[in-house]
Design a protein around this nucleic acid. Structure first.
Lengths: 169, 169
DNA sequence: AAGCCTGAGTTCATAATATGGACTTAACTG
DNA sequence: CAGTTAAGTCCATATTATGAACTCAGGCTT
């Protein structure tokens, strides 16, 4: 009965890892906070600036990087009888960060929250609360104990070794 | 038929937001990469250092912060006939970042990946691939169109306004 | 027309962090 | 006893962030 295997390297090198790549793109405090606001619908330079109190020069650089990455779009728009303005809406790519962000919100609610969380999701159809889960191909929820990592079609860590100490979920 | 409402502030102030709080704790490139490796089972100082090529002084500071936050634990252990060593396993709190990280991985696979992803999850019981989804209280998957934001028990954005341009999922 | 306001930035001097390499310390090992 | 390994610390330099002030264009007011 060994204690759990000593894992000395990740099975996916950081440079081949889409999680690591994502973090390269958006894994920085201001970028994440900008995206949080964007997810709620904020779109204008000065509104991001006022809400987050981010230095204007940093905001400018971060928005440019997000546009460059395809996560936001820079767009001119014109309200009735107003001059043209700039807005930064999320693209489809950016919008789909909603799921990881909501999973992260749930984590924060559980581990950092005081009292009831302010924010949640519900079904428009029946008002039921929604949560993020791991499901199998039939849509059936899976228990944490039943989860295995797979790397390049092989179970990981290799046979004989214990499973990693922690599993998602 | 107005164009979508101009949202000028998030409905949850950053300082009251558990998502923003999470980002304060772990929203930094090295911290995220350290946690990625930790999720795969890496636990030792030099192994994090070698895998990520992170400056030792930065690694030291980040690990201390993660321990302080309760996300990792600093622990002495001793292998058979070896001297005592230090390891940094994830706590339960840290392990539960698996779900948001996996959601993020799926996003990266879709939008940044080239070719087939290297990493996935499967059911131990039947080998089925697993994915992250939004489900209602009965465990039924929900379509993106059917999702509403709720802030302090009220639907948001307020009635009359359009929904935010993008929805999670 | 002159001056004011607003949104969306840019510029720049200073402050805070990161970086990389060398150094330290405490067990073991041959 | 000298060498090695793991887990750090220390420090000079380089990079990035910060905050305040400035720019610029279009529209509004009188």
């Amino acid at each position: 009965m060994t204690d759990s295997l000593l894992v000395r390297r990740s099975p996916v090198k950081p440079c081949d890892c889409n999680l690591a790549r994502s973090f390269e793109l958006i894994g920085d405090r201001w970028t994440l906070l900008i995206l949080r606001s964007a997810m709620y619908g904020v779109r204008r330079f000065d509104d991001f600036q006022a809400e987050l109190d981010v230095p204007r020069s940093v905001l400018s650089a971060r928005l440019a990087a997000l546009v460059d990455a395809g996560i936001m779009e820079k767009r001119e728009y014109r309200e009735e009888g107003q001059r043209a303005r700039v807005e930064y809406p999320l693209t489809e790519m950016g919008g789909e960060l909603g799921l990881p962000f909501f999973a992260m919100t749930a984590w924060g609610d559980k581990w950092l929250g005081e009292g009831e969380p302010h924010f949640g999701l519900q079904s428009r159809a029946n008002g039921q609360k929604l949560k993020v889960m791991l499901v199998d191909e039939r849509g059936k929820p899976v228990k944490p104990r039943d989860i295995q990592y797979v790397v390049d079609k092989k179970v990981w860590p290799p046979e004989g070794a214990d499973k990693p100490r922690r599993q998602p979920g």
